[in-house]
Design a protein around this nucleic acid. Structure first.
Length: 697
RNA sequence: UGGGACGUAGGCCAAUUGGUAGGCCCCAGGUUUUUGGUACCUGUCAUUGCAGGUUCGAGUCCUGCCGUCCCAGCCA
C-alpha cells in the first residue's frame, strides 16, 4: 500500500520513456472519450481515473470529449449525466469537446483523401460489401468501384454530403488492402449516410464519419499525446495509424489496456439497459447497479472509487476484480469518514425494571471513536430501549457474549444491563425483555472493574425516530453472471434477495441533523447513506452501502455448519466468498473445496478404542509438528481386532480443520478413508518415502 | 480456420529489465478494543501455462506446443 505511488503501470512506463526521449515536447495530454449513449459504470471509472490520473501525475491535460458520431443512438440526456458523474468522481476536464465540433475538418480531410486517390465512393449494397470483404480464411475482393476516377469520386462525395442519396445507398471507403489479414484494413468505410437529427448539429449533416476515421482525428486536433483505450481496439490501431499517416497532422499514440470486469455483476451496456428496461432494478441509479450514479446512491464515496481504480491496477490481461476488494476499500474509506450513530434495524423492546418510570437522561457519545475532531452528541436514555433482535438469544450458543437470560451486557455509552426475564406472546414470539441495570455503571464502565465483553447498540424507545432502511446486497448470486446454466439466461443468476426494505427501524434523534447523501455508520451494523433523492427529515430513508465485517457470523458458521440460524440474514459479501469445507452436512464437497484441504502425511503413533463410541478410534498422529495431533476416526469396525497394526502406518491427515471439542476429547484433524470391504471404512495409506508433515497432492 | 493480444497463488497487481518471486484482497489464527468494527501481528497459498534450448544463473532471451480473449457493423 505504501508503495502504491511508487509503482508504475505499463502505460506510465511508456510515457516515462517518451518523456526521456523528449517526445511531444515533454507534454502529456490524454482524454476520456465516452459515447453519449448510456450511463457510465465502474469500468468507465477505471478509465476516467487512468486518463485524468495520468494527466495530473505528469502535469498534463485531460479532455472530456463526447464521441457523438452516430446520431441515431446518442442523446443529450446522457451528456449531462456523464458530466455529472465525472465531476462527482472528483475530476475536472481541461477541455470539453464533441466529435461533432470537428465534423467540418473531418469532412475536409476526407476530401483530401479522395483527391489523393486514397478513398473512393462505394456503390455496392451493404450486403455486397460484406460479401466482397471475405472472411478470416478468404481474402477480400476489390470492389468494382474501387478504381473510380478521382473526379467522379469528388462529385459523388459532394453529392453524398448534399443529401442526394438515401441511407446506405453509397458510402466513402478508404483504399487500403482488401487482402489484409486484419479485417479493419479491407477498405474500411469512412463516411456513411444517415438522414438523422444530431443532438448538436441538428440537420446540418446527412453524412457521418465512422469511429476509426473520427477518433484519430479528434485526438489529433486536440493534441492528445497518449490515446488510451481498451483492448478490443488493438486490431484498430493499424487503421488509426494509417489514417493519420495520410495527413499532415499530429499523430498521437494509441495504447490499449484491459477493461475492468467485476465479479457478481455485469458490465455490458446492453445488459445494464435490460436490467433497467425490464425492471429488475429501479433505474440506472439503483444502488445495486454498477453504474457510477448507482454506486453514488448506494453511498460509495468518490474517493473509494478512486482508490479502487488505483488498487486494481492497469494491465493488458483480461481480469475480473474481486467484489470483495471493492467492499474492503469502501469500508476502509467509510471507516475514516463516517460518523457513528446508533440505529436498530430489527427492534426488540427492553424494559429496565429498576429504572424510574419517568426519568430520562442523556449520555455523551463521540461521533467517531478514533477521531475526536468529530466531537460528540447526546443520546437520550429511558426506562424502555430497543436493542437489535440479533443481539439476544434465548439459548446462547458457544462463544456468545451478547445478551441472553441471566447475562449482563453493556448498552454502548450508557450502562450495564442484565436480562432477567423474557416475555412472549401467544405464538411464542419474544415481545419484550425485562432487564435490570447497574446504576453504578454510568457511561458503560463497570464500577468494580468487572469485564463485560458484550456491547450492544440501542435506542431509547421514547425518543426513537422511525426510519426506513433499504438493505442492498449483490445483484447476482454467482461470480460470473454472464455464464448461465444450460437452458438458463444470465437473468436467472439474479439474486432475488438483493433488496430488503425495512420500515420498522429506529434511530437516535441525531439523524435529524443529517442531509441527503450524508454517509454514516450505524454502529455494529454497517455503513449507510441518507438517500440522495428520498431522504428528508420527515421521511428518513437510508440505503445500506456495505455491512461491517461480521466475525461473529463466521464463528457461528464455522461452529455449526448450518446456516439457517438468524432469520432473514441475507447471504452477504463474506459468506459467498468464504465457502467452507463442510463435510458434516453435505455428502459431497466440490473440487474447489477439496483443493483447499491441507493434506499431510501423518504417522500413527498410537491407537486406542474409545469407550462409549462404537465407531471411533482415538489416534495420535505425527504430522511433523512438535506434538502429535489427536484425531478421532470412525474406523473402529475395520481395525478393532488389529488395532496395534495401525501404529506406524502413514496416513493422509486433513490438517487445516478447526480443532473441535468432542465428547471424548479434542479432535485436531481428520484422516482420509474410503469405503472398504463390507462397507467398512478403510484408511488411505501413504506408501513410499515420505516424512510426517509432507504435503499430499 | 487467417490475424492480433494475453498466460506470475483462489482474485488483482509487482519484480531494479538476466541475479534466484513480493504487495493488496480473500482465507486461518492471535493481540488491543465500550462497535465480535478499526488498527496491529502471525500464518496458509507459486517448481511463474507446458516442453525444450541458450547461460554460472531465466518469470525475464530463443524455439515449439497448449489455453484464453478480440476481429468478418454503413456501432463505438
Amino acid at each position: 500500500m505504501a508503495t502504491e505511488a511508487a509503482r508504475t503501470n505499463f502505460i506510465e512506463d511508456i510515457i516515462n520513456e517518451d518523456l526521456k526521449q523528449g517526445k511531444n515536447n515533454g507534454k502529456v495530454a490524454t482524454r476520456f472519450p465516452p459515447e453519449p449513449n448510456g450511463y457510465l459504470h465502474i469500468g468507465h471509472a477505471k478509465s476516467i481515473c487512468l486518463n485524468f490520473g495520468i494527466a495530473k501525475k505528469y502535469n498534463g491535460t485531460c479532455n472530456l470529449r463526447f464521441d457523438d458520431t452516430n446520431p441515431e443512438t446518442e442523446e443529450t440526456e446522457y451528456v449531462e449525466s456523464i458530466k455529472e458523474d465525472i465531476e462527482w468522481l472528483g475530476f475536472k476536464w481541461d477541455g470539453l469537446f464533441f466529435a461533432s465540433d470537428y465534423f467540418d475538418a473531418m469532412y475536409d480531410h476526407a476530401m483530401t483523401l479522395v483527391k489523393d486517390g486514397k478513398a473512393y465512393v462505394e456503390s455496392l449494397t451493404p450486403d455486397e460489401i460484406r460479401q466482397y470483404r471475405g472472411d478470416f480464411n478468404t481474402p477480400g475482393k476489390n470492389s468494382p468501384y474501387r478504381d473510380r476516377p478521382v473526379e467522379e469520386n469528388i462529385t459523388l462525395f459532394l453529392e453524398m454530403k448534399a443529401g442526394k442519396y438515401k441511407d446506405g445507398e453509397i458510402c466513402l471507403r478508404a483504399k487500403i488492402d482488401m487482402q489484409s489479414p486484419n479485417m479493419n484494413l479491407r477498405d474500411p468505410i469512412v463516411y456513411r449516410i444517415r438522414h438523422a437529427h444530431h443532438h448538436r448539429t441538428g440537420d446540418k449533416w446527412c453524412i457521418y464519419p465512422m469511429y476509426d476515421w473520427a477518433h484519430g482525428l479528434e485526438d489529433s486536433v486536440e493534441g492528445i499525446t497518449h490515446s488510451l483505450c481498451t483492448l478490443e481496439f488493438e486490431n484498430h490501431r493499424p487503421l488509426y495509424d494509417w489514417f493519420l499517416e495520410q495527413l499532415p497532422v499530429h499523430h498521437p499514440q494509441q495504447i490499449e489496456f484491459a477493461r475492468l470486469n467485476l465479479s457478481f455483476t455485469v458490465m455490458s451496456k446492453r445488459k445494464l439497459l435490460q436490467l433497467v428496461k425490464e425492471n429488475h432494478v429501479n433505474g440506472w441509479d439503483d444502488p445495486r447497479m454498477p453504474t457510477i450514479c448507482g454506486m453514488r446512491r448506494r453511498g460509495v464515496s468518490p474517493s473509494a472509487l478512486r482508490k479502487f481504480s488505483d488498487r486494481i491496477g492497469i494491465a493488458k490481461r483480461e481480469n475480473v476484480a474481486d467484489f470483495a476488494l471493492l467492499e474492503h476499500i469502501v469500508r476502509e474509506d467509510l471507516n475514516e469518514t463516517s460518523p457513528r450513530i446508533m440505529g436498530v434495524i430489527n427492534p426488540l423492546l427492553v424494559e429496565i425494571e429498576n429504572y424510574p418510570e419517568d426519568k430520562e437522561e442523556y449520555f455523551d457519545a463521540p461521533l467517531h471513536p478514533e477521531d475526536d475532531r468529530w466531537g460528540s452528541r447526546k443520546i437520550p436514555f429511558g426506562k424502555h430501549v430497543y436493542i437489535e433482535q440479533d443481539d439476544f438469544r434465548e439459548d446462547a450458543p458457544r462463544k456468545w457474549f451478547r445478551l441472553s437470560p441471566g447475562k449482563e451486557i453493556r448498552l454502548r455509552y450508557a450502562c450495564l444491563i442484565t436480562c432477567k426475564d423474557v416475555l412472549k406472546d401467544d405464538n411464542g414470539n419474544i415481545v419484550k425483555l425485562i432487564c435490570t441495570f447497574d446504576p453504578e455503571s454510568r457511561g458503560g464502565t463497570a464500577p468494580d472493574g468487572r469485564k463485560v465483553k458484550g456491547t450492544s447498540h440501542w435506542v431509547s424507545a421514547k425518543h426513537a425516530v422511525k426510519i426506513t432502511v433499504r438493505q442492498y446486497d449483490r445483484l447476482f448470486n454467482v461470480e460470473n453472471p454472464n455464464k448461465a446454466e444450460e437452458g438458463q439466461s444470465w437473468l436467472d443468476n439474479l439474486n432475488p434477495n438483493s433488496l430488503e426494505v425495512l420500515e420498522n427501524c429506529y434511530a437516535e434523534p441525531y439523524i435529524k441533523e443529517l442531509n441527503p447523501e450524508d454517509r454514516i455508520q450505524f454502529e455494529r451494523i454497517g455503513y449507510f447513506v441518507a438517500d440522495r433523492f428520498e431522504f428528508s427529515k420527515d421521511n428518513p430513508v437510508f440505503n445500506r452501502t456495505v455491512t461491517l465485517r461480521d466475525s461473529w457470523a463466521k464463528i457461528e458458521k464455522n461452529q455449526s455448519g448450518s446456516a439457517d440460524r438468524g432469520k432473514g440474514k441475507q447471504p452477504q459479501a463474506s459468506e459467498t466468498a468464504a465457502k467452507k469445507v463442510e463435510t458434516k452436512d453435505e455428502d459431497y464437497i466440490s473440487i474447489d473445496d477439496f483443493a483447499k484441504l491441507d493434506l499431510r502425511v501423518g504417522t500413527i503413533k498410537s491407537a486406542q478404542l474409545v469407550d462409549g463410541a462404537d465407531k471411533l478410534l482415538k489416534l495420535q498422529v505425527d504430522i511433523g509438528e512438535e506434538k502429535p495431533r489427536q484425531v478421532f476416526a470412525g474406523i473402529r469396525k475395520r481395525y478393532e481386532t488389529e488395532i496395534d497394526a495401525l501404529v506406524g502406518k502413514n496416513v493422509v491427515v486433513v490438517a487445516n480443520l478447526k480443532p473441535r471439542q468432542m465428547k471424548f476429547g479434542l479432535s485436531e484433524g481428520m484422516i482420509l478413508a474410503a469405503g472398504g470391504k463390507q462397507n467398512r471404512l478403510e484408511l488411505a495409506e501413504v506408501l513410499g518415502d515420505t516424512l510426517p508433515g509432507d504435503t499430499v497432492s
